[in-house]
Design a protein around this nucleic acid. Sequence first.
DNA 1: TGAAATGTTGGGGCG
DNA 2: ACGCCCCAACATTTC
Length: 489
Amino acid sequence: MVVVPPLLSLLKFMTQPYVDSVAPVILWFRTDLRLRDHPGVAAAVASNRPIVPLYIWDETLNTRRLGAASMWWLHRSLKALDEELAGLSSRLIIKSGDARACLSDVLQETGAKTVICSHSFDPALERFDENLVHSDIGQYVDFQRYNATLLAAPGKIKTLDGKPFRVFTPYFRSLVANGLFRPDRPASFRAATWRCPRDWPWSAPLDSLRLDDTRGRSGRNWASGFDCFTPGERGARDALRAFLEDRLLLYATGRDFPECDATSRLSPHLRFGEISPQRILCELACAVERQPNLAASAEKFRMELAWRDFSYQLLDQQPRLHTVNFRPEFDSFPWRDDEPGFRAWCRGQTGFNLVDAGMRELWRTGYMHNRVRMVCASFLVKDLLIDWRRGEQWFWDCLLDADPANNPASWQWVAGSGGDAAPYFRIFNPATQAEKFDPKRVYRDRYSEAGSQNDLFSSPRTPIVDHAFARRRALDALGEMRANSESRE
DNA sequence: TGAAATGTTGGGGCG
DNA sequence: ACGCCCCAACATTTC
């Protein structure tokens, strides 16, 4: 008595929105929002099956919920990806809700037996993937994952003891020795070989996600200054070209001077996987070949790419990198509770004009020059003696390039609690830094009070702390930490 | 990918 | 001519 009622099978046929003799592959995008130089995309095309591009919006999927600025970026990047796909007569399918359920639905709707995606290297999402492979879905689905975003996937290279690297320089050497730091162009595909499912019954309800809702943020118009960036693959390519042509020559000498536009401004593009580090290495090599005097700059910039990789190496060793000190002795560091100080810092009201300019740049543009990031972070951690996690969280929320590995790793680097960190006693003098790196006040004037259209920022203030006093206090705190951790042993 | 304290050196003024 | 002091300019050490 296992007769299928004819009506039910008819119903099943009718609700099956897509029918094709060849089962499609699902191309599940996460933080690899591009089509070119993408091993997963290349594999999907090479399978010669129809491709169903998918994005799942599940806020609980990653270790941390996205910050507000990142939401702004993601929204536009997904839109750009959808447009790129439209050029291939395809669209991006957007699902919202529990990722496992969403994926299961799409598998059922499409009859796909293959899911192709990239490692996100977010610890929680990696765990999700592993669970999926070993679940019932994994029984009948071929789950292919590629590394589309790092030079070396964490765990790929190890020390001679077989341990993961905790210090940058040996890590870098190993990267080079293993041939992972060469300009190899990653696999790509020809547009003509992209295959779409025969009919396309799904809409792309991107706007229904309301990712772009930044209204709750500051009242009005918070994101108006973000528009100097163009999220998406094309924007990333243009940004790289502009960097190579206009600013790379200046990079080696000018990157520490925030008034010079000598930095690449590629960080948010890298964070969302709109461009790959391999691609950047390639383009750098080409640029140097054409113009040998770019070599010194290119070498310095390549090093920064290696640092990004190294951050992921650290995140892999400490999945809670944004909440846990990489060096445990910092667990007994006597941080101060200073809510007014923290608020002053966030709002650019510390009375140290370089710090304040930096914090305003962050708020207005979703970005901050790297040199100024170090000064601002050092000020919070060492002059105000406020826990680095508070600052990290603020940056996480405000930075367009807020990266799950780079952001916490860099904060721990400044705080001295990181793996290969700056020694804690290396304390920036915000006035000296301003004198050295913004001697003509160009940067400070650019992000001065006057430029602000926002009520958050009021008139300049006298310094909220005396630096000489604060420096002494920070060194004492370090001594206290050492005493604490010694007595604990 | 610091800064401040401390140490050293060397030139010049001066008795 | 010489030693002495002063101090700027570096260099080294320490946090």
